[in-house]
Design a protein around this nucleic acid. Sequence first.
DNA 1: ACCGAACCGTAACGTACGGTACGGTTCCTG
DNA 2: CAGGAACCGTACCGTACGTTACGGTTCGGT
Lengths: 218, 218
Amino acid sequence: MQTGLDINGGEELTERQMDVLNAVLRLLVEEGDRLTMTAVARRASCSKETLYKWFGDRDGLLTATVQWQASKVRVAPVDRARLDMASLTASLERFASDWLHVISSDTSIALNRVAIAHAGEEKRNLGAIVLENGRLAMGRRLKPVLLAGREAGLLAFGDDEQAFRTFFGLVARDVQIRLLLGDRVKPTDAEIGRDAAEATRQFLALYGAQTGAATAGL
Amino acid sequence: MQTGLDINGGEELTERQMDVLNAVLRLLVEEGDRLTMTAVARRASCSKETLYKWFGDRDGLLTATVQWQASKVRVAPVDRARLDMASLTASLERFASDWLHVISSDTSIALNRVAIAHAGEEKRNLGAIVLENGRLAMGRRLKPVLLAGREAGLLAFGDDEQAFRTFFGLVARDVQIRLLLGDRVKPTDAEIGRDAAEATRQFLALYGAQTGAATAGL
DNA sequence: ACCGAACCGTAACGTACGGTACGGTTCCTG
DNA sequence: CAGGAACCGTACCGTACGTTACGGTTCGGT
């Protein structure tokens, strides 16, 4: 009753346990939330008893999977020294491209779907986890870059949260919601690269120190 | 076996049937996809036998509900004659405001949640219906305005689809995905008005004929 | 007044699946 | 080699819920 429930921050997972979570992830992509504990056990070649010992219950298994996958998205921060327009543009494009790749991936779609499906319930953990490690983590990652850009006189904005949300909108547009709803619009790498560059260009047009000060909400 | 399955285009629903669908809608908001046929029958004060006779099965009931709700979103088109910058701005702000109100509403959130939850399955109807009557309908509605704006020399863009998607991103930003994931960010009317105006201003900065031609992807 | 259609309320059926129990196997330790 | 921990595979249990069946009631038409 007391084991297997320590699914909080950065818990330690054995190799075997990660194999199990990988199986869950694949099943999630294939069948969505309809996966059964029996199917997981069969796919992972383990017993249901083990699943329950390790993860508590079905919800715990899903939570562990989402959390584990989310923990993989860590990316290196940017060095705030020596920032010019070229490196700022490159950073933004990199962010945009990474983000578009993530939200277009099958695993991200599957994970967001199950998190959204469970978001209306009392156990609202999945949605919060995905939000925390998706949208919010991206904000925490990008805001230092924006602030450094402002400090270097390259950007002009009043609130970094507002500036970030605009960038988010320019990058994501309608891609995520369409994919979540089952639309077949999965962009190619080339399209992602083009869209990332375009979004960055537009963002700089709005928030660049020279061009866009009038529209930056000052 | 053959009755109750004519749930396609604009089928005719009796008053009583709409009462039932309203009950489904309320239950969907309250408990999400976990609603049971028994609960629907109780809430609507009808028998389960009637539900099955009218709507075929659970999926048919959900589909009818989504379709019925979607059919309510119709809005009057804009007259393309006599378009100046003021009326264009007003139109765009109106669109933005309407859209933000829709995606922030409890019913929209509930409907999108159930549609997304079912989007990974073979019966992908719900996602397609929501997409068709949400994002895509908004595009069909707004594009004539954009084209009229270009014709009047107020806007500059190459592809109306691209321009619309940018507008979509500037308006929606991260609001919808956050709400779907259970974040408590429901904006007030005042915030929606401010955000709609801001998004419109930014869009005109990017695609206005004078200011933004360089960034319009020409 | 009578009939049948439509519908309500509820009981009942079948099944899928979450969760548990248990016997058998592997493997590690002393 | 003995003992035990961990785990696999599977059978089993309980329940929730989709779906069906059925008796009783209302109501419009003749």
